[in-house]
Amino acid sequence: MDESVVVAPDWLATHLEDPQLRIVDVRDAWEYDGIGHIPGAVSVPFDRYRDESDVDRGTLPGADAFAALLSDVGIAPDDTVVVYDDTHGVFAARFVLTALEYGHDDVRLLDGDYSAWNRAYETTSDTPELEPTSYDPDPLTRGESPLIGFDAVEDALERGSLFVDTRDKHEFEEARLPGAVRFDWREAVDDETRRLKSEAELEALLADDGITPDREIVLYCNTARRISHTYVVLRALGYEDVHFYEGSLTEWLANDGAIETGPVDEE
């Protein structure tokens, strides 16, 4: 796994004293305060970087709002940021995607979640002292960003891109984009260790569904949360031509996009 994208608990444990390391806990505030957290972590609950009020912007909070959030918790543009949750990384991955979109170069997902960390390392209830920064965002341009919208999705369908649906089977059968394959985002996680499966296992699983690095890939789910995890996993594996349909099926259906329904042979 590319350590510039995903880091193991061992890596994080050996870098806790790095003055440019910032750890972000995206669980609910009561979990951060009541259950404990990784030493040095700041609390940024998931709902603080999710905006459902602007349909044109999907669930992204906006560059200025996100920059203000990072400033409040003492994060500077050149800091190394490691993010975790306690739900196998799916909410943390959304933070990673958001930070990348708004120009933070060094943001990484913790391989495993709080429970995985807690099995091997100490946690704390101490809240770190925060010194606010003045964070200036540098959002990716249209050509740089992996995010695409409805029109670009239509174009991708026409040129035969591989659409990957990361939802549950019953959701997939109810409605999906034409020709899509299903890769449940949780397939990437080992239930016993709570960490990502090995690189070889992941590559084999993806290849079984035709999800290979030579394909142009478009990810979608319902509201762009679950695809965040799969997007980070693919980046960590070295996939380069990966697009992220931020509007996902919610926008697609609202615009009367073509769909398929019913069961498919996933063997």
Rank of each mutant, 00 (worst) to 15 (best):
Ile75Cys: 07
Ile75Gln: 03
Ala76Cys: 00
Pro77Asn: 03
Asp78Ser: 04
Asp79Arg: 02
Asp79Phe: 00
Val81Gly: 04
Val82Asn: 00
Val83Ser: 03
Val83Thr: 13
Tyr84Cys: 08
Val90Gly: 03
Val90Leu: 03
Phe91Asn: 04
Ala92Val: 05
Ala92Tyr: 01
Ala93Gln: 10
Val96Lys: 05
Leu97Ile: 11
Leu97Met: 10
Leu97His: 14
Ala99Met: 03
Ala99Pro: 02
Gly103Asp: 08
His104Pro: 09
Asp106His: 14
Asp106Tyr: 08
Val107Met: 02
Arg108Tyr: 11
Leu109Ser: 08
Leu109Met: 13
Asp111Phe: 13
Asp111Ile: 07
Gly112Phe: 10
Asp113Gln: 03
Asp113Val: 02
Tyr114His: 07
Tyr114Gln: 12
Glu122Phe: 08
Ser125Met: 15
Asp126Glu: 15
Asp126Pro: 08
Pro128Arg: 14
Leu130Arg: 01
Leu130Ile: 15
Glu131Val: 12
Pro132Gly: 02
Pro132Cys: 06
Ser134Tyr: 15
Asp136Tyr: 07
Leu140Gly: 13
Leu140Ile: 10
Gly143Asn: 14
Glu144Gln: 15
Glu144Gly: 14
Ser145Gly: 14
Leu147Glu: 12
Leu147Cys: 10
Asp151Lys: 11
Asp151Tyr: 11
Asp151Phe: 04
Val153His: 15
Asp155His: 02
Asp155Thr: 04
Asp155Cys: 04
Arg159Asp: 00
Ser161Gln: 11
Leu162Trp: 07
Leu162Lys: 02
Phe163Val: 04
Phe163His: 08
Asp165His: 01
Thr166Glu: 14
Asp168Lys: 15
Lys169Pro: 09
Lys169Gln: 12
Lys169Ile: 11
Glu171Leu: 02
Glu173Val: 00
Glu173His: 06
Pro178Glu: 15
Val181Gly: 04
Val181His: 08
Val181Trp: 12
Arg182Met: 05
Arg182Tyr: 05
Asp184Ser: 15
Asp184Ile: 07
Arg186Thr: 12
Glu187Cys: 02
Asp191Ala: 04
Asp191Gln: 06
Glu192Lys: 08
Thr193Trp: 10
Arg194Glu: 13
Leu196Arg: 11
Lys197Met: 10
